[in-house]
């Protein structure tokens, strides 16, 4: 019996209270989700906050830095800007600096990127046969950063079990404690 004492509180709830308990948990998740979606709408980027996962942009960005991105259609991409882009066949977007830009009259843009800390440009990282990036590959452009604020994300990525343990613990805590 002893080890299940924390469930006593749940056992004393009626149907409505149990449902509210689930809703309460749902609202914590929903609030986070809606803040994220709201940021997406405001910044125009599908992923407005990213964490730098590699050291390829040192000394500008270190592993664990948090970046705020925007991706407004009307802002042109310029050399020297730091862009976050997706490559087909890779799960994780890359944060690198724009090295060369070609703009055409009809509005199409092609550009090349390179990591500050890498000795060669990114053509080796792109999909096979891809020489340039286009506007559709861009997730956003770095507008602000918070040093090391994303270190927890890195820890969670490196130790997935740690992540699941924390999530399970928090979920259980919210569901079993009333209000």
């Amino acid at each position: 019996m002893g080890s299940f004492d924390f469930l006593d509180e749940v056992r004393r709830m009626n149907g409505r209270q149990l449902y509210y308990q689930v809703l309460n948990f749902g609202m914590i998740v929903s609030s986070a989700l809606m803040i994220w979606k709201g940021l997406m709408v405001v910044t125009g980027s599908e992923s407005p906050i990213v964490v730098v996962l590699s050291g390829s942009m040192e000394p500008a960005f270190h592993r664990g830095d948090l970046l705020l991105l925007t991706n407004h259609r009307e802002e042109p991409i310029r050399v020297g800007e730091i862009v976050v882009f997706k490559i087909e066949g890779r799960d994780i977007p890359i944060v690198h600096r724009v090295l060369k830009v070609h703009e055409k009259e009809n509005g199409t843009v092609r550009f090349l990127t390179k990591g500050d800390n890498n000795s060669v440009d990114d053509r080796g990282l792109y999909a096979k046969g891809q020489l340039w990036l286009e506007k559709k590959d861009v997730v956003g452009r770095a507008k602000a950063f918070l040093p090391y604020a994303g270190i927890v994300t890195i820890l969670m990525n490196d130790y997935p079990k740690f992540k699941y343990a924390i999530l399970a613990f928090l979920g259980l805590f919210v569901l079993t404690h009333r209000e």
Binding site: R16, L23, V29, S30, M34
Partner: peptide, 21 residues
Amino acid sequence: HKLMNGRLFLCTVAIGFAMFA
């Protein structure tokens, strides 16, 4: 149960919006 139902209704609709999004 009117009061509690009102609160449950508000929460459910709010979560409905989030899930729809």
